[in-house]
Amino acid sequence: MKYRTVFDIIGPIMIGPSSSHTAGAARIGRVARNIFGRKPDKAEITFYGSFAQTYKGHGTEIAIVGGILDLDTFDEGIIRSLELAKEAGIDIQIITSTEDVEHPNTAKVRLKDSIGELEIVGISIGGGTIEIVSMNGFNLRLSGHHPALLVLHEDRFGMIAGVSNIMTKYELNIGHMEVARKSKGSEALMAIETDQMIPDELIEEISKIPYILTVTRLQA
């Protein structure tokens, strides 16, 4: 990923010592919470690479839990995130792994409740900038800096065209798009970043397309 501005290198306004290990981790946690769409009952966080080795010194676990609580990088509540999570009834489990990963600052977040669960893998690439590289087993590249649509659907002919036509109707410009599937004819995922905010009406129309399973909106 290319840096968009000098602030992607300097880092965001934040609580904590490291834009990569603290601000980036908070953003990974917050993207997971926004995709999940509600307070989880349980959060299982696995750190890999440098995250696994240094997370205690940088407060990476505090930051990522703060994100799961929907706190921004500059919110002073992040300092008390573990305590706040306990008060909210969220069971937090921190795991470290020695598994080889593509990027040293990698975290997997699994959120669960009685309704369902979500698993994302995110990487912190510097200056507080992140990428979500996997969601529920689908490979993708999602920055978390732009509004996005996550459309889960059956892998059938014409699905991309159907979604694109509705986005054209609402004059939404596609800035980046990823399409992934687990196997031919099974479930597939569209991850679409847009230049504009995504209205409720668009979500409703896309949800009515045949063979659409779920539509999730991620507002930056």
Rank of each mutant, 00 (worst) to 15 (best):
R4T: 10
V6P: 05
F7W: 10
D8E: 15
S19D: 09
A25T: 04
A26F: 06
R27Q: 06
R27T: 03
I28E: 00
R30K: 15
R33K: 12
R33A: 15
N34T: 12
G37F: 12
K42V: 08
K42E: 12
A43V: 13
A43M: 09
T46S: 06
T46Q: 04
G49L: 14
A52W: 01
Q53M: 10
T54A: 13
I64G: 07
I64D: 08
I64T: 11
V65I: 15
G66C: 13
I68C: 14
L71C: 14
F74V: 03
S81P: 08
L82R: 15
E83T: 10
L84V: 06
A85Y: 09
G89F: 11
I90C: 09
Q93T: 12
I94E: 07
V101W: 03
E102P: 00
T106C: 12
A107C: 11
A107R: 04
A107M: 05
A107H: 02
L111V: 04
G116L: 08
E117S: 15
V121P: 01
V121H: 04
I123V: 15
G127R: 06
G127L: 08
G127Q: 06
G128A: 07
T129N: 05
I132W: 00
V133G: 01
S134Y: 00
L142Q: 02
G144H: 05
H146P: 00
A148R: 06
E154Y: 09
M159D: 04
V163L: 11
E171K: 14
E171Y: 04
N173P: 02
I174H: 07
G175P: 00
G175S: 13
H176G: 06
E178H: 14
E178K: 13
V179L: 13
V179A: 13
R181I: 04
R181G: 09
K182S: 08
S186H: 11
E187H: 05
E193H: 06
T194P: 02
T194S: 15
T194C: 14
D195K: 12
D195W: 13
D195Y: 14
M197E: 15
I206Q: 02
I206Y: 02
P210C: 03
P210I: 05
I212E: 00
I212V: 15
T214E: 14
T214K: 13
